[in-house]
Write a protein that binds this DNA or RNA. Structure first.
Length: 151
DNA sequence: GCCAACGTTGGC
DNA sequence: GCCAACGTTGGC
């Protein structure tokens, strides 16, 4: 079992939205590295840390689980979608995603600030300066520590 | 709202 | 294939 982290601006999609929906396709990722992680690395049942970005106290707010095999991101085919990609075709889809199922909301936010000061999390790419990846793998030891912190 | 980081685009 | 310009992300 592997650990990953996915970022979202709560204004656009929050952990509460996922709690309500139970499962959602993680659409709208338009970065090749992030796509490759979803398409080639993730497996059913893997743990996903849910990170809120773009707010005063960014941090990890809960957990999800990979709930599907990779599949084409439908929004790339939709001309009315913000994520429409005219260069993508049904035959050769450019963008893939996985479904993410809700697991839990943490009783408190694991703030970026806190995580950046934790000696057990040295090397965590989330807290590296300039990191913009919205989907990233998390080292197993770091993942276990994050779950420990959330209790 | 600023700006660092970094991915993408397009001219050459 | 280089690289400048531009756009986006996201913390602060």
């Amino acid at each position: 079992m592997q650990y990953f982290l996915m970022k979202s601006e709560p204004e656009s999609y929050s952990i509460d939205d996922l709690a309500r929906d139970r499962v959602t396709p993680w659409e709208g990722v338009r970065n090749y590295q992030a796509r490759n992680t979803m398409r080639d690395v993730m497996a059913l049942g893997d743990v996903v840390f849910f990170h809120h970005s773009g707010i005063a106290e960014p941090g990890i707010v809960g957990e999800g689980r990979v709930a599907s095999l990779p599949h084409p991101d439908e929004t790339q085919f939709d001309p009315t979608s913000h994520y429409y990609d005219p260069k993508s075709t049904r035959e050769y889809p450019r963008w893939y995603c996985v479904d993410v199922a809700y697991v839990c909301t943490y009783p408190r936010t694991l703030t970026l600030k806190e995580l950046g000061n934790d000696s057990a999390l040295v090397g965590l790419s989330l807290t590296k300066r300039g990191n913009r990846l919205s989907v990233m793998p998390i080292d197993p030891a770091h993942g276990a520590h994050l779950q420990h912190l959330s209790n």
